[in-house]
């Protein structure tokens, strides 16, 4: 039996709106609103909005089915990416971007939910640095050129390491670097590719910077072990 609460009526309204606009415009993209109506309840509950309107077992089921759906979408994107790449179609980069954005969103929401902000901030900065070093290594192989080209990215790894000792100061530096990177990326054109790059590069860095400044919700004991 359907539960006729405010979320039900909101979802129904979105559904009807999608169908009406599709009927009028004949543009199939409006049918994505139907997906919105289906995902409204679990999304609101996951964001802690209207949690009282969602049963705890329904939430547990939503978490599990959400994880399965996420894995399926990532695999589908990878398959599509490989398929388009083999055809020589550059749209494979969009699928690639979806995979990266999805994984980044999952990793970042984990950081927020765990609450161990400073440690996570350090890990994110070092992770971004090491990933960039890895990309340079794969492009150039192990050579002197690679060492020179990867030097700035080793610098990012170093900043990450320093953030353990000076979290607030490094947090500020990281936010400053992010603003500069954002301007550099978007100055090359305000097109979808640049926007995706900007999101992929800046979201983890902003998260890391803010995490380092805000501090931990989880206390550490004198031996340096994390106490949850």
């Amino acid at each position: 039996m359907l539960k006729k609460d405010p979320i039900f009526w909101m979802a129904t309204s979105i559904f009807i709106l999608g169908v009406i606009i599709f009927g009028v415009t004949q543009n199939q993209l409006w049918l994505f609103l139907l997906a919105g109506s289906y995902l409204l309840r679990p999304t609101l509950a996951s964001l802690n909005i209207a949690k009282s309107l969602v049963d705890e077992r329904q939430m547990s089921i939503q978490y599990r089915s959400g994880n399965i759906a996420f894995a399926v979408m990532i695999i589908a994107c990878i398959i599509m990416s490989v398929y388009q790449s083999n055809k020589g179609d550059h749209s494979w980069e969009f699928f690639n971007a979806i995979v990266i954005v999805g994984l980044a969103a999952k990793a970042l929401s984990n950081v927020f939910l765990i609450g161990n902000y400073r440690e996570s901030g350090t890990k994110i900065i070092m992770g971004v640095g090491l990933m960039l070093v890895l990309f340079v290594s794969l492009e150039n192989g192990f050579s002197v050129g690679m060492l020179i080209e990867s030097a700035p990215f080793w610098g990012i790894v170093g900043i990450g390491w320093l953030s353990k000792k000076f979290p607030r100061a490094i947090g500020g530096v990281v936010l400053g670097i992010t603003v500069i990177l954002l301007i550099l990326i978007l100055s090359k054109g305000f097109i979808i590719g640049q926007i995706i790059t900007a999101v992929v590069v800046t979201v983890p860095l902003v998260t890391a910077g803010v995490s380092l400044i805000v501090g931990d919700r989880i206390e550490s004991d004198p031996d340096g072990e994390t106490v949850v």
């Binding site: 539960k3 009282s52 049963d55 705890e56 077992r57 329904q58 547990s60």
Partner: peptide, 22 residues
């Protein structure tokens, strides 16, 4: 207790680990 009947059924059948609150 403001849950669905299916949740009570699942608890009685041992299909669901409920929260401490519930």
């Amino acid at each position: 207790v403001k849950v669905s009947r299916q949740t009570i059924v699942a608890i009685e059948r041992g299909d669901y680990n409920l929260s401490v609150k519930l």
